[in-house]
């Protein structure tokens, strides 16, 4: 019996889809059977980020309305046999699926997969309710910005009321070390003070994330990048390993180095 994990944030554009894609990839790399579920009906992206768009035949709405079997809608990833995607429909909207139907689909997937990663749409309306309906665990994604932390807080409040979901865990995404240093971004400690939930991982802002998304290859497949390392750590923590937090990469300038040498920090 697998576990269903919903990836959510409240605010849009903080990296839910990227996080879902990479966590799914990392877990598949660890040899787990993983199914990614895109619940952003009408604005689907997960298939594009995974590079699986051209293989979609049926989608989530077709399954919910019994127009096809669940297995027929699953898109197998060409790179890993253990990774599948249940894509969202692009033609209809979020009201076309009910939370109860969604729960039924996720429950069915749990029989065949170790992990079901549910990519949640932005907002806290029907799309969110659909995504949360079948989940056992939740990952909240935020960035070091006030508005994003505020929305994460709101979502955590709602998730805590869902009795079937274990306490949500946090991923802080798009950290820019130089901005934190000069006070332009919230510090990780400040975010943790407010949200007060378990920290699952921190991911540095990395240009490669965008370029690899555009290529349809999750960054987790490029082991050299810092963001990839961060997602691998997150994956290992989900599997129950205890991995220390990554030391954030700092590129000190020339003057900084000289100051360091002279011991004037």
């Amino acid at each position: 019996m697998g576990e269903a994990i919903v990836v959510t944030s409240g605010k849009g554009g903080v990296g839910k889809t990227t996080t879902s894609a990479n966590i799914g990839t990392v877990l598949a790399l660890q040899g787990k059977k993983v199914c990614l579920v895109d619940t952003d009906i009408g604005l689907r992206n997960l298939d594009v980020v995974m590079g699986l768009e051209n293989r979609i035949i049926y989608d989530l709405v077709d399954v919910a309305h019994n127009r096809c079997k669940l297995n027929q809608a699953l898109v197998k990833d060409k790179r890993f046999a253990s990774l599948s995607l249940l894509p969202a429909a692009q033609t209809t909207d979020k009201m076309s699926v009910k939370p109860a139907e969604m729960k039924k689909i996720v429950d069915a997937l749990k029989a065949d997969f170790d992990y079901i990663i549910i990519d949640c749409p932005a907002g806290i309306e029907r799309g969110f309710q659909n995504a949360v309906a079948g989940a056992d665990h939740a990952i909240v994604v935020t960035t070091p910005e006030i508005s994003s932390v505020r929305d994460a807080d709101r979502v955590i409040g709602i998730l805590e009321k869902e009795k079937q979901i274990t306490p949500p865990r946090l991923v802080i995404n798009r950290i820019r070390q130089h901005m934190i240093r000069n006070g332009g971004m919230l510090e990780i400690n400040e975010i943790m003070d407010i949200l007060a939930i378990e920290l699952l991982g921190i991911v540095q802002d990395d240009d490669d994330v965008i370029s690899s998304s555009n290529k349809g290859e999750p960054i987790a497949m490029t082991p050299s990048s810092k963001a990839s390392q961060a997602y691998r750590n997150i994956g290992r923590r989900i599997l129950g390993e205890s991995v220390p937090l990554m030391v954030l990469d700092d590129h000190p300038g020339f003057f900084h180095k000289v100051k360091n040498l002279l011991g004037m920090r």
Partner: peptide, 13 residues
């Protein structure tokens, strides 16, 4: 009366 509550009152609550 004094009512004690143990919780985090989050955004929107």
């Amino acid at each position: 009366q004094l009512i004690s509550v143990a919780q985090i009152v989050r955004s929107g609550q």
